[in-house]
Write a protein that binds this DNA or RNA. Structure first.
Lengths: 215, 215
DNA sequence: CACCTCACTAAACAATGTTTAGTAACTTTG
DNA sequence: CAAAGTTACTAAACATTGTTTAGTGAGGTG
């Protein structure tokens, strides 16, 4: 792809392009290492030196490709957001908005319970939230959230609820699902025996669906 | 109080007692410093050296009174749990279980929004959860949680709901309240303009109460 | 071929949790 | 009361981790 072009412009572009490509490859290599370490050791076990060791470069090299650890964090958050979106995609094809909403919720909770570290990264890690609005991970998360509120809107439009306050309905449902997953992920359910926790979560989800039907 | 006793048992107890008292005082001094720093700089700004500096002792001294930073963390969590319990106490005097439950929920959310750092410490900080069950802070939190489930049980007994599944009802309500506060505390509500966030939370709480009425 | 740019690194710095070895004051004992 | 023992405390060090600095050498340029 680039090599043909290179024949014509060896002195103007090809080297610069190759360097750019190599730069992108290196960024991707770093991120992939970070991803693996995160999956193995969690966010706490993820540090610059461990990334450097894994890719067999010095720690200082990392800083030539990412400004600081926060940038790597943002990139990981993007991966988490993408994983979440992919997990939720099957719901999008359901025609009936109410059924779509239920499946969306079910998959949302399912994602949280199956990938607690991803969920944690997205919604529970304190980490850098300063200029998160400018980050791709936020944009992606926002898109998924929009899909959710649009589905709620579709339910409202189709008169599935008596209430027409789409915003509050959507927010309330989100609060429940998020609270449910959060208590799981951060282990604040220890008053319940471990073997009933997942069952309780499912029962609660079902109950919330029933409650929403009466809205 | 002790001094009289000391006249009789100078060689057996008084010195040991005074030392014990001094030890307790020192622990309390350290904790109080930690408390202040936590309130001013948050958990991230809280470190052993800053505590040591505030009480004008060397950092190593801290370790003579607390095994490690986790122990200080547990002690702070206890303070947070006590603050939460105190905040919720007014609800306890309400006779009608349904009104008591509503007020309990309102105060719970109110506590979270007014003291995000305390709430964070109790429910969102990753920190050490290994042997938390043996810690006083957990016992206290459990007591508050029991008060909550007992109130739900009272509502069930008084036939305020059609459902009799106390556990699931309580858990569902908790999920919503916890999710609501968590999204606030960890700043995941940036898709809503700041000025409507608190209003939205209140509307959602009201909506949840209405939904619960139909349970 | 001399120059230069740039990717990379060793080493250091800073912050923070924690341990060690020692000192000085206090307590007990003869 | 003096010697011996115990204890509270500390300076200094060590370990970990994020980040910066000063350089080095290999590859590209004129």
């Amino acid at each position: 792809m680039f090599s043909n072009f290179a024949l014509f412009s060896r002195f103007t572009m090809s080297i610069a392009e190759r360097k750019e490509r190599e730069k992108a490859e290196m960024r991707s290599l770093i991120l992939s290492a970070a991803h693996h370490i995160f999956k193995e050791k969690g966010y706490d076990g993820l540090n610059i030196r461990s990334i450097a060791e894994r890719i067999e470069y010095s720690p200082a090299t990392i800083y030539l490709y990412y400004k600081d650890k926060n940038e790597i964090f943002y990139a990981l958050q993007y991966e988490a957001a993408a994983a979440k979106r992919d997990h939720l995609i099957p719901a999008a094809s359901i025609e009936d908005p109410w059924q779509r909403l239920i499946e969306f919720g079910r998959l949302y909770v399912d994602f949280g319970l199956k990938h607690p570290d991803w969920y944690d990264l997205l919604f529970l890690t304190r980490a850098p939230m300063e200029h998160i609005e400018n980050q791709e991970c936020w944009t992606l998360g926002l898109a998924t959230h929009s899909f959710f509120t649009e589905t709620v809107q579709a339910c409202v439009d189709a008169r599935y609820f008596k209430s027409t306050d789409t915003q509050t309905i959507a927010y309330t449902l989100w609060c429940h699902a998020h609270g449910l997953v959060s208590l799981f992920v951060r282990e604040r359910m220890r008053m319940y025996p471990p073997e009933i926790r997942e069952e309780l979560a499912k029962k609660s989800f079902t109950m919330m669906v029933k409650m929403a039907e009466g809205l």
